[in-house]
Design a binder for these strands. Structure first.
Lengths: 353, 353
DNA sequence: CTGAAAGCGCTTACAG
DNA sequence: CTGAAAGCGCTTACAG
């Protein structure tokens, strides 16, 4: 059953081991007659290639790259950390991983980083993408070289990657709205929203999802137009302060984007009762704010699960085997009670090979 | 770097390959002098054993067993399904898995199932455990035979297993309370709780966690003593009906245990507004109830993540290598908006080998 | 188009 | 206590 080897196949087909290998691995230069005989034997014996043996024989190492935006963004620091930890662990399985720093939110920068990948021979790369036609050419070049590409956290043009690992941002926004509605349905009132930029697709999707649910199910609440923050904590802080001091204070805050440090700072100063407060991404400061009761909920996309999936997926793609069953990826709701023990274990290294 | 082989070590140490192998794999019958020389060389060269090559050479297959309670409990059906899917996928990595049916909640039955494992030679087993001293002997026997044992979903006596994969039920109860509090803080009122049995440690822990949070943070609400249901849908249905028809209806339901089908049935019949409703475990019917707006929240322990971890952990334990970084396991909150696409893909098989 | 053979890094008898 | 050698299931030159 689990026993047939290529040697068995060759015997059964009445050809040499080398010939059997040629057809199984599509190396060409084989007579059609032999091909048929081998395919037959493969089917009869239920042969399945032993990847471990093949890798041993070729001294194969899996070369992976992760293109991650630079900057001190706490979320991506968490992503990097998770990649490094996993990299350390799979080193003994002959996989190397490089983390490539990409200037954030720049199509040009991403374009050039992807272009440079061609110089090395990676087997698979995971890219925090952008939706831009400009990326199609370098991605096509990668694919032409047999490199497997997946989108991570933020997608790439669909035709040019094998898979996408990330949450549905519209779902994330809807979830935020549901929780805001639950927490305020008896009070109604206005919800002040904040976004980094409406050009950022993920922000726009979250906001739309949020609005849809509030409008449909919590009509007693009103969603105010978003304040643009560029994800800058200072901007967020000042805007939040302003809103908190208004004559008729809003009943809820929803920050679609980053920069929560500023929002939390403004709330911490408040002496009166604060609005119901929902933000995205669990990192050190949002976790602390939850514990301190300065915010109510964090919607998180579980970068640990995402990175875990990225490794599993990349290896399956490279080995050209079936995709493994992977845990579902849904926006996760954190309150102060269900926080993970350690959100983020800092490490010494910054790169692994 | 990643290149030293045992052969390199043997050379460096000035001994034969076989001798180097003896000390590295602790097979004994080696002079202390040789041992020292080899250890030295290993350290100098940073030798790390190639597990894949070793497995190939030994024709090793990982034999895993999962002991899962029988019955039509939807949660455990989901667990089984996840195990089968993963089993199918890792078959090509030479791992076989058996699912052993264990009569539910019986220490005696579990004791005898564990005892029978000794007859086969599994490398690792994951057990949905019970906390009973009676299990210590058969577990000790397993360990003596070098079998790795982990607790899954429900723990075993701590000294007799290598790890536990499951959520903290007290945290799950606290989380349920937080959500109930958020959804009702402006209304107050009474919360009717339901438990399968207070002897079941997980139920008791959830209930206590729930009570603690309500008492501390939502004093305007009262937690009524739990109704004992034995996880029987019929009992639950009748009790819920009764509560729904009371003169002064309760403002929330919290079902600590199983049997949600009955609870949902009672709610579905209700024409007036229903209580705020929190239950555990996302399965087909609880998912549907969420979509239909018959309940508000499901607290789930992510059996897909748990099973995924169980496989990763068992293999690491068997290989005696460092434990892999694994996604955190926390009680997950589902509302109708962040549901996974497919909760449960049924499969044809019932067992895999 | 086909085949024989060495080698990947290990383990396991077997012989001293 | 120590070592030489075959074999695990593959891939890769190399020779026809």
């Amino acid at each position: 059953m689990s026993g047939a080897t290529l040697s068995d196949v060759a015997h059964a087909a009445g050809v040499s081991y080398a010939t059997a290998d040629r057809v199984v691995n599509k190396r060409g230069n084989v007579a059609q007659k032999s091909i048929d005989k081998v395919h037959d034997a493969v089917a009869r014996l239920g042969y399945v290639r032993n990847i471990a043996a093949a890798n041993l024989s070729r001294k194969h190492v899996y070369r992976l790259a992760f293109l991650i935006p630079t900057g001190s963004n706490a979320f991506f620091l968490r992503v990097r950390e998770q990649i490094l930890q996993t990299a350390r662990h799979v080193r003994v399985d002959s996989v190397t991983v490089d983390i490539v720093d990409v200037p954030a939110f720049s199509v040009d920068a991403l374009h050039s980083c992807i272009g440079q990948l061609t110089g090395y021979d990676f087997d698979g790369v995971a890219i925090v993408g952008l939706q831009s036609g400009a990326l199609e050419q370098p991605l096509a070049d990668l694919r032409a070289r047999g490199v497997k590409v997946i989108g991570l956290v933020s997608d790439l043009p669909k035709e040019f990657r094998s898979a996408y690992i990330g949450i549905d941002n519209s779902v994330a926004g809807r979830t935020a709205a549901r929780m805001t509605g639950l927490g305020n349905r008896d009070r109604g009132g206005e919800i002040q929203t904040f976004v980094g930029s409406l050009d950022a697709r993920d922000h726009a999707e979250r906001l739309q999802g949020f609005r849809d649910v509030i409008a449909a199910d919590y009509p007693q609440m009103t969603v105010l137009d978003p304040i643009l923050t560029k994800d800058d904590p200072t901007v967020l802080r000042d805007a939040a302060r302003h809103a908190l001091r208004a004559e008729r204070p809003v009943s809820a805050f929803y920050n679609v984007g980053a920069g929560n440090v500023g929002l939390i700072e403004a709330i911490r100063e408040t002496t009166s009762s604060r609005p119901f407060c929902v933000v995205h991404e669990l990192v050190a400061h949002s976790k602390q704010a939850l514990i301190d009761n300065h915010i109510d909920l964090v919607i998180d996309q579980r970068p640990d699960v995402e990175v875990n999936r990225a490794f599993a997926l990349l290896r399956a793609l490279i080995d050209e085997r079936e995709l493994p069953p992977m845990p579902d990826l849904v926006p996760t709701i954190y309150v102060r009670d269900n926080l993970p023990a350690e959100t983020f274990k800092p490490a010494m290294e910054t790169q692994t090979t």
